[in-house]
Design a protein around this nucleic acid. Structure first.
Lengths: 239, 239
DNA sequence: CGAGTCATTGAAATTACTCAACCCTAGTGG
DNA sequence: CCACTAGGGTTGAGTAATTTCAATGACTCG
């Protein structure tokens, strides 16, 4: 498992150009490492956090609960990703952050982060850019859930997860971890769990993708991508 | 009509705290004022802009077109708002920016903006925060289009537009400009124009809201808000 | 006046949801 | 070692929301 500093370097290197000095400065960032059980809230709506998080092990997600109890998952985050950098400048949380599986998370005080950002303007640019790429991904989720029918939306999400995992070396043999239940998948795509189940069967029978036991197995990326109308441009990957 | 500097001050004051010196520095920002006819693209997917925009008059929107020709409107922007500040750190446009009505737009060179951001760290914080609030709004659009049925989603969008207009003094007598066609409304909510038409009738007959001729008339904000499960927290309004 | 755009309506088809039951598997405690 | 349980996962049938298609109406602009 990576340290907070190393994980940050890996992640930010996917987002923008870092000099050797930048990387050294980022590695100097200290934080507290915590382990949470699965399905545990880490931050809640209304919180005023004084630290940002980085996933070191396991998976986390962000979500909101509607008035009627409906949950909308707004993002998934795998190791090295930073689910709440935006708290640097947004005072109140407007969503919840929770673990999906048991997860080890690094908590970095804003003051500690700011120290490096003021010292190194380029790191500030890259961290800012990171928050903007998050926004770009959210926009794509909006497009996905608003315009695509269920099977295409699901294919699109699978393409994204696989591509992001690949960017940080978390794939092997066309598979990657995606340890979410069908219900959580439903809450991210804005459809019901029953419909997810049936849609998964369609994708499986078309021999495009297999999703079982928290493992995503992409059997035909090309056709999955075509079905999903997936273009990774919006991920703004630098690596 | 406001100047670029004055409009920026009005907008950024909604986002965060600005000192007198900050405001003076922002007012010193120069840009080019351009007028576009309605329904005209201002930026396109793949562009590498070297300037950011601020709406001075009229309305603009951001949108993407899917493989099958489906358009997803991702945001609307009224006067004083800044639809593409994120281009400061995101090199390639991943969506289009277009006018809705005839519009007058201020174009600010990134170099000019950076000049003030490096001089005044607090302005940088507020501008960064602005881009994060955009992200927060996008997340709410995701929730809206993913979890709410058509009439609630539409009510929610109306609440948001009215609230944002109110924040910058663009409402009078429970009305505000919202000069979009039913088709564009459909493309923002992710439903068909036909369904928009019928849903509008429902809201109108319930005496909640009237939407005609580009004017939004909120007849009962309380009930509209209740129907939409609208909580303005996500707008992170500072004023 | 005519062309074009936007709004409205109706009916049929499709997609997705609801509800309720059943299955499967991993983990638990006796 | 086995029965029990709980949390997914799967299935079927009926229902509701939304789309599609096609036609008509209203309004604006040149």
């Amino acid at each position: 498992m990576l340290s907070i500093g190393d994980a940050l370097v890996v992640h930010l290197a996917c987002v923008g150009e870092l000099s050797t000095e930048d990387k050294a400065a980022i590695r100097s960032i200290k934080g507290e490492v915590r382990t949470y059980p699965k399905q545990r809230d880490v931050m809640r709506v209304g919180d005023k956090p004084d630290e940002s998080m980085i996933v070191l092990k396991g998976h986390v997600c962000r979500y909101t609960i509607g008035h009627d109890g409906a949950r909308q998952v707004q993002s998934f985050h795998m190791p090295t990703e930073t689910p709440c950098l935006e708290t640097l400048h947004i005072d109140y949380m407007d969503m919840n952050l929770a673990t999906v599986t048991e997860a080890t998370i690094g908590a970095i005080k804003h003051t500690e982060l700011q120290r490096v950002l003021t010292e190194r303007p380029n790191v500030l640019s890259v961290v800012w850019r990171e928050t903007l790429v998050q926004g770009s991904i959210t926009r794509e989720w909006l497009v996905r859930n608003s315009t695509l029918p269920a099977h295409a939306a699901m294919a699109h999400l699978f393409c994204e997860i696989y591509t992001r995992a690949q960017a940080v070396g978390l794939t092997r043999d066309m598979t990657c971890d995606f340890p979410v239940s069908q219900e959580m998948l439903a809450d991210s795509l804005g459809i019901t769990a029953v419909h997810v189940n049936r849609t998964l069967q369609v994708l499986r029978e078309a021999n495009l993708v297999q999703f079982k036991g928290g493992l995503l197995w992409v059997k035909d990326f090309e056709r999955l991508q075509a079905l999903a109308d997936f273009d990774p441009l919006y991920l703004h990957l630098h690596c």
